[in-house]
Each structure stands twice: as structure tokens, then as C-alpha cells.
Design a protein around this nucleic acid. Structure first.
Length: 463
DNA sequence: AGTTTGTTCAC
DNA sequence: TGAACAAAC
């Protein structure tokens, strides 16, 4: 019997279509391991919603492994030390893991390989979290892409990614002591704010596969028509599952490519393409979450205002579409994509708040928090990013509400205090003769805020 | 992946 | 008076 291999789960919490797991299981017994390395220097700590998700996803993964006779080992601490310890405890001489495309993770993993070799252990990393290698895609000039459309065209020209695979045969390795998941305290307790998350989500690979199958079956055909309506269940809602790798983008790709009857499929795959593009940008600009991609935004006259930032976070800006989104986020750890754009635009353009503050709030509150997507999308909405909305594209939260939530169903769902308003006033309650008493008046006037934002943008040009 | 404003042209 | 369009922000 060959020596056992450690399979190090990271953001690939699945058994299906996991190429690194297939490589590990090739004739060897497996010690499945997850390391909570939340104090690693340079690595961003998980947000609260992500920690909630991780707890349940790990529980699911452990159950799936147990059905196959394997025990998931949980350990907390610096990955380099834990991996060496587990190898020594189990006699493993190899470790396999899915590679992570984030620049800081790449640096950490690169340092791990020689460190582990000193203990006589090889670390093999298998790329599997993206459809296309972000470094392989370059413009004709050999530069990273700055615009999505040519990026995605070049990606599609590469042809189909490899077919997805099933679960390999898994042989249990030696037993190994691990932590108790509950002791990690990933779940909130005092207070327990996760009730809305529990009601909205089922973390784990099984639920991810079910959701993909159901979406391809029932949602894909109408995706182009319904994807922008937040009141409707018209999107895949796969983002948190993709963020934790409970499903792979290859599985998504091939499930969709089998069903190209409408225009929904190409549109939906291009949304997966934005995820690829975000990682492409992050690799070209490792500071994407910290620094303006466009350097001229370093001169932007951001306004620090505790009261308006607090109102935004709590969903008390007086603009129903913004507030409904922010309350959906706080309640469920999610916000519909259309509403993310409206709420994000409002924070940056109406309140002149530095996009990094919004990025940090989303990072903490989103169950689908993803370093590349979150950073690239906030820079897109702020106008500071690659292929971004031009800064003068300022969403009017009233018009956006009337266009994408015409009867106010979405707003009423998250703002029950507006439940009795007629559809004609639901997105501008202040126009009523008797505005609702328990809902705030707009914290900024749209017209004033728009002019102020345009002036701030002008100030970048004239210096 | 936008909004506002001004112009034209058909009621 | 208002829909449709273009241009500017």
C-alpha cells in the first residue's frame, strides 16, 4: 500500500469535479483536511457571513466524506505547521490541493512547497477554480485585458474547458485527531443574526448541485428577461456556492452548454465570464481591493460622514430601492445584482463615500464574498476600475426602482413600513401628502447629489 | 450595466 | 402634450 496523501480542502469544498482530489486519490489512501488559517499575515480574514457559510459547508462536506468512510480532519493554525504535523502523524508523503488564483495565496503556496519539502513532503497544486487560466489570456500586445468584451471573446475562442468529472474512489487514510467544528465558533451566538441566512440558504455541495440543475431546467430560458428583476427568482443564486467551490465553474459551463435553446445561456455564461475577468484583473493588479485601479481616483475628494454611512448600512437612506437592498443584505447575506449596482452607486456617488468602505461592508456581510469579484465590482461601480461605468453614469434610485421593480414587490418585501403605499409612490414616498412616519426622508436630494458627484469627478480632470 | 436635457415630430 | 431620438454629462 502506498503512503497516504493529504487532501487539503480550501475553497473547493466539493467531491465532484475536483481535479486535485482525483490526483490525490490515485491509488493512495486519503486524509481529508481543512485548515482554518485565519491569522495568516497578508491574508484577509473571513467576513461574518462567510464564516457562517463555511461552518455549514464544512459540516456538509464532512457528512459526504463520512458516507464514503472518510473523516474530515479540522485543524486551526498556520498552514505550514499544520500540514507538516499531519504528514508526520499520518505518514503521508504528499499533499494535494486546488490552487488558489489570488496573488497573496499564490505567494503563500509558493513558499509552502520548499518548506514542506524539507519535511520530505511534496505539495501538488492543481488549477481548478476558473474556466480559463487568467495568465494565459492576454491581448495581442501581450498585456492583460482592460475591457471585458474582448477578454471574454478571447476566452470563448479557447473552446470548451475540460469536461467535468465525478467523485473518484476514495480510500480512507489513517485516523487523525482534529478539532470539533463547533469549537471554531464560526457561527454567531450573541446575538445570533443568522436567522435570515438559515432561511435563505442551504450551504454545501448537494444543495449547489440541486440549485444548478434547477436553474438550468427552469431559469435559464427566462434568464435574459428576468435577471434584472429583484422581486423575481430569475437568477441562479449560485454565487456563494461558487465562492466556496461547492460547485465548479466547469460544472456550470457544461450544464449550461447542454441547454442552449434561448439567449439566456450565452448571457448567463458571460456573467460567469465576469468572475473570470475579475480574477484576471486581480492577478494583473494585486492591490485591486485596496488601491484605485485608475490612479487619477487617488485625488478623489471622498467625504467621511459617519451618519450617512451608517444610514446606508442600515438601509435608512430614504430611497426605497437602496434601503431594500441593504436590508436584504443584512438579513440574508445576499443582494440581487441589480440592487448591488444601485446601492453601490448611491454610496459612492450620492454620498461620496470611498468605495473601499462599501467593499469592506459587503465583504463582511455577503455569503458570496469573493476577493476578486467584490473588489472588481466595487471599482466598476465607483468608476475607478477597469472597463468601469463612466463616472457620470449616476443611477437614479427612483428611476431604477420604477424600471426594475415596477409594482414595488421587492421594496415591500424588505421595507414592510412601505407596505401600504401605492405603486405610483412606492419608490418616492416623500411625494405623498402624508409620507409614512416610520420611514426616513431622503438623506440627500438626488439632484443636489448628482451635481455634487459630477463636480467631484470634474475635479479629477482639471488638476 | 445610466440620466438628463433639448430637439423633432406626430397627434 | 408627449413619444422618440441624440447629445452631453
Amino acid at each position: 500500500m502506498p503512503a497516504p496523501a493529504i487532501f487539503w480542502f480550501r475553497r473547493d469544498l466539493r467531491l465532484h469535479d475536483n481535479p486535485a482530489l482525483i490526483a490525490a486519490a490515485d491509488g493512495r489512501p486519503i486524509v481529508p483536511l481543512f485548515v482554518l488559517d485565519d491569522e495568516a499575515p497578508g491574508m484577509r480574514p473571513l467576513g461574518g457571513a462567510s464564516r457562517w457559510w463555511l461552518h455549514h459547508s464544512l459540516a456538509e462536506l464532512a457528512a459526504g466524506l463520512e458516507r464514503r468512510g472518510l473523516e474530515l480532519v479540522l485543524r486551526r493554525g498556520p498552514a505550514a505547521r499544520i500540514l507538516a504535523e499531519i504528514a508526520a502523524e499520518t505518514g503521508a508523503d504528499s499533499i494535494f490541493a486546488g490552487s488558489r488564483p489570488e496573488p497573496d495565496a499564490i505567494a503563500r503556496d509558493r513558499a509552502l512547497i520548499p518548506a514542506l519539502r524539507q519535511h520530505g513532503v511534496t505539495l501538488t497544486l492543481v488549477a481548478d477554480s476558473l474556466l480559463f487560466s487568467p495568465r494565459r489570456l492576454m491581448t495581442g500586445a501581450g498585456e492583460p485585458f482592460k475591457v471585458f468584451t474582448p477578454f471574454w471573446r478571447a476566452a470563448l475562442a479557447l473552446g470548451d474547458p475540460p469536461a467535468s468529472s465525478g467523485v473518484p474512489g476514495l480510500m480512507p487514510g489513517p485516523a487523525c485527531r482534529g478539532d470539533d467544528l463547533d469549537d471554531w465558533r464560526l457561527l454567531p451566538s450573541t446575538p445570533d443574526w443568522a436567522g435570515g441566512l438559515r432561511a435563505a440558504w442551504q450551504p454545501g455541495e448537494t444543495a449547489a448541485r440541486d440549485r444548478l440543475a434547477r436553474f438550468v431546467d427552469r431559469g435559464l430560458g427566462d434568464y435574459g428577461r428576468l435577471r434584472d428583476l429583484p422581486a423575481v427568482d430569475g437568477t441562479s443564486r449560485l454565487s456563494p456556492h461558487l465562492a466556496w467551490g461547492e460547485i465548479s465553474p466547469r460544472q456550470v459551463w457544461h450544464a449550461v452548454r447542454g441547454r442552449e435553446d434561448g439567449t439566456g445561456a450565452a448571457k448567463f455564461l458571460s456573467e460567469v465570464g465576469w468572475r473570470e475577468f475579475s480574477y484576471h484583473l486581480l492577478l494583473a493588479s494585486p492591490g485591486l481591493a485596496e488601491a484605485n485601479w485608475r490612479a487619477d481616483f487617488d485625488r478623489f475628494p471622498w467625504v467621511e460622514d459617519k451618519a450617512t454611512f451608517r444610514a446606508w448600512r442600515r438601509g435608512e437612506t430614504g430611497y426605497p430601492m437602496v434601503d431594500a437592498g441593504m436590508r436584504e443584505l443584512r438579513s440574508t447575506g445576499y443582494m440581487h445584482n441589480r440592487v448591488r449596482m444601485i446601492a453601490g452607486s448611491f454610496l459612492v456617488k450620492h454620498l461620496l463615500t470611498d468605495w473601499r468602505r462599501g467593499e469592506a461592508w459587503f465583504w463582511d456581510n455577503l455569503v458570496d464574498a469573493d476577493h476578486a469579484n467584490n473588489a472588481a465590482s466595487w471599482q466598476w461601480v465607483a468608476g475607478s476600475g477597469a472597463d468601469a461605468a463612466p463616472y457620470f453614469r449616476i443611477f437614479n434610485p427612483v428611476l431604477q426602482g420604477e424600471r426594475y421593480d415596477p409594482d414595488g414587490t421587492y421594496v415591500r418585501r424588505w421595507l414592510p413600513e412601505l407596505g401600504g403605499l401605492p405603486a405610483t409612490a412606492i419608490h418616492k414616498p416623500w411625494t405623498l401628502a402624508k409620507p409614512p412616519r416610520d420611514y426616513p426622508a431622503p438623506i440627500v436630494d438626488h439632484r443636489l447629489a448628482r451635481d455634487r458627484a459630477l463636480a467631484a469627478f470634474q475635479s479629477l480632470k482639471t488638476k
